[in-house]
């Protein structure tokens, strides 16, 4: 399995990278960590005329605080995000999701932005970003836009990114006080793609009721989806509420069917994983009050 021939273009600056994607348009593939693009090239599922390697673009690296958000450069390696105290303190949901992403060896090279661009419906990083209500920052020659993660993903391996755009950063809203986070998934093997994944964020008021609650689901539909749990705001942060909320979410999803799992199985995963992550998030939110 070897890639078909392509022109290799290594950009040393963001401007060079933007010139290259403008020149090649949809004939180019942007190469970051290569943990998803590499296999697709090797298996010739992708045969781009040109590869635009952005690994030397210094502007795409780093993790920093920007206002109320933690901004991670698109090239931020998953291993570096996992080791980051800023991510651990201010974006705990990402820190909890990252151990599920591939393996130690692929996290060493794989990037946050690359995973988002790849838009695999079962991927953990897009799910965490969507659940938190984060943004994807895109640049093109002479232009820039930020797109809410919820609007960025359009389907399997499909996003709103235009061929002449490059994802430059992700913006993760900082965790609020008295807020708990949890992430879990079911896969055939650890590190494999999730059959179903669930991410929860919950804020618990001093009286023990839910001030805010979000449940994101990955691998269930063709993109990360958020369950509408607005009816549970004000409900007690208990295991029973978690179970009821997950059951409501399970009733509303439109699950994918593939050789690994039926729609009914995926719906059951939403019920089980949803309840599990919500309950853990409630506990963690409560623990912060003590």
């Amino acid at each position: 399995m070897k890639p078909a021939p392509f022109e290799y273009c290594r950009a040393d600056t963001l401007d060079e990278a933007l010139d290259l994607v403008a020149e090649f348009g949809s004939d180019a593939a942007v190469l970051a960590g290569g943990m998803s693009l590499g296999p697709m090239l090797n298996m010739r599922l992708a045969r781009p005329a040109a590869i635009v390697d952005v690994n030397s673009v210094a502007d795409l690296s780093g993790i920093r605080l920007v206002g109320d958000a933690v901004e991670t450069g698109a090239l931020c390696r998953q291993a570096d995000a996992l080791d980051s105290a800023l991510v651990g303190d201010d974006v705990p949901l990402l820190a909890r999701a990252l151990p599920f992403v591939g393996h130690f060896q692929t996290r060493n090279r794989g990037t946050l932005g690359g995973s988002v661009c790849h838009a695999d419906p079962s991927a953990e990083i897009p799910l965490a970003l969507a659940t938190l209500g984060g943004d994807v920052v895109l640049r093109r020659k002479g232009g820039m836009r930020a797109v809410a993660a919820h609007d960025f993903f359009k389907g399997i391996f499909t996003s709103v990114r235009e061929p002449d755009e490059i994802v430059t950063a992700l913006r993760w809203p900082r965790s609020e006080p008295k807020t708990g986070h949890a992430f879990d998934e079911i896969a055939q093997r650890h590190g494999d793609f999730a059959i179903g994944a669930a991410a929860a964020v919950a804020t618990v008021a001093p009286d023990g009721s839910l001030a805010a609650v979000s449940l994101g689901l990955g691998g269930i539909e063709d993109r990360p989806v958020l369950a509408d749990l607005s009816g549970f705001v004000g409900a007690p942060a208990t295991a029973r509420t978690a179970s009821e909320a997950a059951a409501l979410a399970a009733g509303r999803v439109d699950p994918m069917v593939d050789p690994r799992a039926s729609a009914a199985y995926r719906r059951q995963l939403v019920r089980v994983l949803g309840a599990r992550v919500l309950e853990r998030a409630f506990e963690r939110a409560g623990a912060r009050q003590c």
């Binding site: 943990m35 090797n42 590869i51 130690f104």
Partner: peptide, 10 residues
């Protein structure tokens, strides 16, 4: 300094 897949790098 990092263990990576050499089949996924050019």
């Amino acid at each position: 300094g990092r263990a990576v897949r050499s089949c996924l790098l050019f």
